[in-house]
Design a protein around this nucleic acid. Structure first.
Lengths: 350, 350
DNA sequence: ATCTCTTATTGAATCGATTCAATAATTTGT
DNA sequence: ACAAATTATTGAATCGATTCAATAAGAGAT
């Protein structure tokens, strides 16, 4: 099946290409009769004008940026997208979002797509599971395509807006220890995720800076899929004597924390009376949960705004080549899913 | 500031356009020394190849479709996007998502953007607040651009995949009446939303088919913004004598229902013992809530799959012009936020 | 040093629309 | 009925890349 071009339409309608073009672009100069006839022919031939060709002549005026997220169904990411949209729209940019579903292959495809479509730049929450593959990022650099990463990726110099994962968890654990918790465990995320590793390290580090000592059993592999978390949490407690129950669980993320709370409910373990639960991320639903979640807030909105700001600057000032690396701080938010076991001992000011 | 083209690079590097093109496309035939030199010049001039021009020559091979949602932060919509992605990816299509934020202006801009970028087709959850503006949809028809609507829009013939809102609510109310509820109210959504109106009508209709009679006070305008719902719910009950409390509230959507449950908790009204709460949509969080939500499930995943299926068929079989209109049925899902007041009376089978 | 055989590079033609000055057709005024 | 004014239509040049056959440069063999 041959491709239909504006020329085919022009021939069939016995007019010039220029007139057909005028009809497509709703120019008023076309006589209604001609116009109707051309529209009919367009329909007959099922003519779909090529957007690429249309835009080539006039430069490429639209303002648009893209975001590639790992999971469009996790509110954490859509909140970032909201921040991006807010800033971008205020600067006249449209925003398109795509989900890489944690697949390198998909992320690569999407960066190609965005650049090929002359989307002006892209913000990427990069997939870094396993060995990070970054040739596609190098390609973007080669073609001087502006992009901002939402996670520091080893091996490439780029604009980055991110948070300090390790320190975030440390904050939380330090708080628990400070408030009298002694038996604390970390429910770790999916083994292949880089975040999982970072958070485990943060957890260990908090212990090394305290009077308590770290033991390997404190790290429990739970994952982040809801049903899996739910099941593994129940299994964990079934294999434990009541007197060995931890007094606090630091979760991989809020989603996992929600699953854990639900599992505990089924086991008739009270949150926070029996066990304190600490989330991570502060997704929208953490706040509106019946047991509002104590969590480590990552400033999703601000990340989005900052990333958009850097991206648009890179797009609009092509001469400015300096890279920006911004690390935003997390905030520990105490809500109702955690409690204090004893008031902290007085400390010397410092 | 002048636009840099491949020709500028070629001149500066003292090679032909063909060689520069070969470098950009990572062709192996280029001698490393030449290649490096050209890359340097590209960097110097900050040359960004125009994707449009690149694609013009070879046709436009990529497979991609778009989705325009009203709110990328409401899980209902991202679940639809997930369904779309699933089907589209299986057919080799990439998916890009955009949020219209309930703005006609934005929706229009985005349809332009997608068609201009030669995204092959688009699925639209159309904004229909106020007077639906649909000239942009007519434009899509004119250029024979394939699209599928996720809501029936008056005044235009198009592919549609949707559900029957009115009937969905009717189902729920009928269930409540059947199970002994007599004092039922509907917490309506934002006044300007078309869904709000449809759901109110469904609610009334359910009454007209029962032995109970409808009264205007049964419709309470609550909205769907979380904080607003929360506040208005509390106000509603504060102005009500305890003996006048409804035994069941049919909510506009799950999000509202969650806000209502939280407000009731603060008022020490027990769900479902004192009041049954019925949601609408069955978002992901409805299921994993500590009081799992009784709700009217809209098959989000299936909607996405069906819409993608129709869209891709329209893209790939341009001659097939027949329009499809699919209405999927909702399912009433009883979970723990509602209870039966008395067992239903025996009925004649039919 | 010369002739092959590879390997690199060139550049004119091409993709499919838009543009706009030139020209044709139609309407208006007298 | 004719000139002038207005409105519609034409078509060659253009946008910025890719392509690929033709050609040039470099490597190896004698």
């Amino acid at each position: 099946m041959k491709k239909i071009t504006i020329e085919d339409v022009a021939k069939r309608a016995k007019v010039s290409k220029g007139t057909v073009s005028a009809v497509i672009n709703a120019k008023t100069s076309v006589k209604p009769a001609t116009r109707d006839h051309i529209l009919e022919v367009m329909k007959e031939l099922n003519f779909r004008p090529r957007g690429m060709a249309m835009n080539l002549k006039n430069g490429n005026l639209d303002k648009s940026i893209g975001i590639i997220l790992k999971d469009i169904n996790y509110p954490f990411y859509t909140s970032i997208a909201l921040g991006v949209s807010k800033y971008a729209n205020s600067k006249g940019y449209s925003v398109v979002v795509a989900s890489s579903n944690d697949s390198h292959e998909c992320e690569k495809k999407l960066t190609h797509l965005f650049s090929a479509k002359d989307i002006k730049g892209v913000i990427i929450a990069p997939v870094v599971e396993g060995t990070a593959e970054i040739e596609h990022l190098f390609r973007l650099k080669m073609i001087n395509y502006p992009f901002v990463l939402l996670e520091d990726v080893k091996g490439i110099q780029a604009n980055v807006v991110a948070i300090d994962n390790k320190n975030a968890i440390k904050q939380a654990v330090a708080y628990l220890i400070e408030n009298g918790h002694k038996n604390i465990v970390h429910f770790a995320g999916p083994p292949q995720s880089s975040h999982t590793q970072e958070r485990i390290e943060g957890f260990r580090h908090a212990f090394s800076e305290s009077s308590l000592i770290f033991r390997d059993e404190m790290i429990v592999s739970i994952g982040s899929d809801f049903d899996e978390c739910f099941k593994k949490t129940k299994d964990y407690f079934k294999n434990l004597h009541t007197e060995d129950y931890p007094t606090a669980i630091v979760c991989f993320n809020d989603h996992q924390a929600l699953a854990v709370i639900l599992a505990l409910k089924e086991l008739s373990i009270k949150v926070p009376d029996d066990i304190s639960i600490i989330g991570n991320d502060d997704i929208y639903y953490a706040r509106i949960y019946p047991v509002p979640l104590t969590t480590i807030r990552t400033p999703q909105h601000e990340i989005g705004i900052k990333a958009a700001e850097i991206l648009i600057r890179a797009i609009e000032s092509p001469t400015l080549v300096s890279l920006e690396r911004v690390f935003l701080s997390t905030e520990f938010i105490v809500r109702e899913s955690s409690k204090i076991i004893k008031t902290p001992s007085l400390q010397k000011a410092n």
